[in-house]
Design a protein around this nucleic acid. Structure first.
Length: 572
RNA sequence: UACCCGAUGGUGUAACGGCAACACAAGAGGUUUUGGUCCUCUCGUUCCUGGUUCGAAUCCAGGUCGGGUAACCA
């Protein structure tokens, strides 16, 4: 029977899952209700891939007056910890979603899940199997050949029930027995070749403590939790497609009233990034990053610390869409979503990352003044501020060239530029370190008539550069980041190596002694700024010291000049 | 070799049998006190072959290519 969605397109649906749901509601499926769920396993921190699942599940509920539950899928105590339970809640809230009272744990249903196991046993649909792990997998058969029945498959319901109860009571060793569904050892779908429902795990659980020594598997527990919570649409990723028949088997063979349906969609992949909890855990454990919240990590805590906004992440999730094609999104999409958001909101400030002294020879020594600067040209309501100016400034080392190429618009001998919000200055010369040849000071004169950066005589300059008064500069440490991985697809590696070999050795550059405009001394922890002409930066309390703040560069501004220069370099 | 799923510009998505659209990237130009922002323009014989139809990205058949699946992980 075809689904209503197939023959009756639904307007206002932005993707196939939404279309499916709207069709269900229109036809009265699930009593017309919508209840989704986000079911993380608390064995790691949430990352940008989870953000997509969160946005899809919570977003759908929000848009259509439904409910989205947060459920911890904590059926395997060997890898799960409370630290993760807490971070996951923090991250989901930070992303901007609220589960209200609908917080659940699979472990909260353990008693009922077990009860359904006894039901399956009584119905002759499950049996206790004494095969070892190796034998279970041997009996399962291969891709092209059917499996064969376990010798324990035909035990009586009474015997199975007794055995199951003894399993629960802890009478058997870990790994010595399992409860298995009796389905079809010859099924072309491996998931139906008598899947394990319960295994013996003599491990304490972070919520149920020592109450259990048998734990249900995902395939068995998940549909039951969904049904018990009244989930209508159980959304998951593509690799569970083959599990759907098993999902339905469990749902239909235990006495739960609800009939949730599983729908699969493609997970998010990003270039220059790995998104697997196992791999991220390795980066943390092997100390290739400073922790789960290292600003280079694709975790939500890392992105947050880096300066990403929840709005930008949600915008990305909206833009990538929901489909069944396994794709990889260019990481510049993420970066661009942040630029988009922060361009509108972030206050501007001037910050010189690599200071080079600029002396204005005709500006009265020892004098100074305060100049007006616009806080955000995109937002007039943000107002203006005063910036201190004097004869000795710092400018960006990159903004001066002793021998500038033709299309370099910045400062060079004899050239005139605008100091943003200040004056036009003309370079009169520069001093070098006699031993190294390095430029240590640039000299110039200013035009008093150009105060504020205006040119009353209509004179044009191609370049406008930022600056900070040397005497007023706030010294700070600034961390510049590049992709954590140097390869576009980090998992594409030659035989014998793994994704770790693609780590980018230059993913972190610490610039110490940047010169910032004094205003930044009051930057609140986590506040985000645009350092003019450079990028968006976030104040980090963890790395700051008194009088010496630290900033992370969340993302650079687009840099047309860098592109031009690179192209010219490539021509040579 | 079995089963399941998929295929639309460089990338990610849209189209619901009727002019292939949007975002990003790339390129060209314009505006600009950020080489930012903003604006304009350029960039596709919809994987192939055949069929149904007045008409196919869409429906059908066969193929090709890609992904997933043989944990007591989720």
């Amino acid at each position: 029977m075809s689904h209503p969605a197939a023959s009756n397109p639904v307007p206002n649906a932005s993707h196939f899952v939404e279309e499916h749901i709207l069709a269900d509601r229109a036809s009265g499926q699930h009593g017309g209700r919508l209840n989704t769920r986000f079911p993380p396993e608390p064995n790691g921190y949430l990352h940008i891939g989870h953000a997509k699942a969160i946005c899809v599940n919570f977003g759908l509920a929000l848009r259509h007056g439904g409910v989205c539950n947060l459920r911890f899928d904590d059926t395997n105590p060997t890898t799960e910890e409370v630290e993760y339970v807490e971070s996951i809640q923090t991250d989901v809230r930070w992303l901007g979603f609220d589960w209200g009272d609908n917080l659940f744990y699979a472990s909260g249903f353990f008693e009922q899940i077990y009860g359904f196991a006894e039901e399956l046993v009584r119905k002759g649909l499950a049996y206790v199997c004494d095969l070892s792990g190796d034998d279970v997998s041997r009996y399962r058969g291969a891709l092209t050949s059917p499996g064969k029945d376990s010798p324990f498959r035909s035990r009586s319901a009474e015997e199975n029930l007794a055995l199951l109860r003894r399993m629960r009571a802890g009478e058997f060793d870990e790994g010595s027995r399992t409860l298995r569904a009796k389905i079809d050892m010859a099924s072309p779908n491996f998931n139906l070749r008598d899947p394990v429902l319960y295994r013996i795990l003599k491990k304490p659980h972070h919520r149920t403590g020592a109450a259990w020594c048998i734990y249900p598997t995902y395939d068995y527990a998940h549909p039951i939790c969904d049904a018990l919570e009244g989930i209508t649409h159980s959304l998951c990723t593509l690799e569970f497609e083959n599990h759907r028949p098993l999902y339905n088997w469990v749902r239909d063979n235990v006495s739960v009233a609800a009939k949730p349906e599983q729908i699969e969609f493609a997970r998010l992949n990003l270039t220059y990034t790995v998104l697997s909890k196992r791999k991220l855990l390795r980066l943390v454990q092997e100390k290739r990053v400073s922790g789960w919240d290292d600003p280079r990590m694709p975790t939500l805590s890392g992105l947050r610390r880096r300066g990403y906004t929840p709005e930008a992440i949600r915008a990305l999730c909206e833009r990538v869409g929901v489909a069944k094609f396994n794709s990889t999104v260019d990481v510049v999409q993420l970066e661009n979503a942040l630029r988009d958001d922060l361009n509108k909101r972030a206050p501007r400030a001037m910050a010189v990352l690599r200071p080079l002294e600029l002396v204005i020879e005709n500006y009265p020594a020892g004098a100074g003044e305060e100049l007006d600067a616009v806080n955000n040209p995109e937002d007039p309501a943000a107002g203006t501020r005063k910036v201190p100016f004097s004869a000795r400034l710092f400018i960006e080392r990159d903004d001066f060239r002793a021998d500038p190429p033709k299309d370099f618009f910045r400062l060079g001998p004899g050239r005139e530029v605008r100091l943003r919000y200040a004056y036009f200055v003309t370079c009169t010369g520069f001093d070098t370190d006699p031993s190294t040849g390095e430029v240590i000071r640039v000299r110039c004169t200013y035009d008093p008539a150009s105060k504020g950066g205006n040119s009353p005589d209509g004179r044009k300059v191609k370049g406008t550069i930022h600056w900070v008064s040397a005497a007023h500069a706030l010294r700070a440490d600034v961390r510049l980041y590049d992709h954590l991985f140097a390869a576009e697809h980090p998992e594409d590696v030659p035989e014998g190596t793994d994704f770790m070999s693609n780590l980018n050795p230059r993913s972190l550059e610490v610039v110490s002694g940047a010169a910032l405009e004094p205003l930044l001394a009051s930057a609140a922890a986590g506040s985000r700024w645009q350092f003019e002409r450079q990028g968006y930066f976030c104040a980090d309390p963890q790395d700051s010291r008194p009088g010496r703040p630290a900033f992370h560069r969340a993302v650079s501004l687009k840099d047309t000049w860098a592109k031009v220069e690179k192209r010219q370099g490539g021509q040579k």
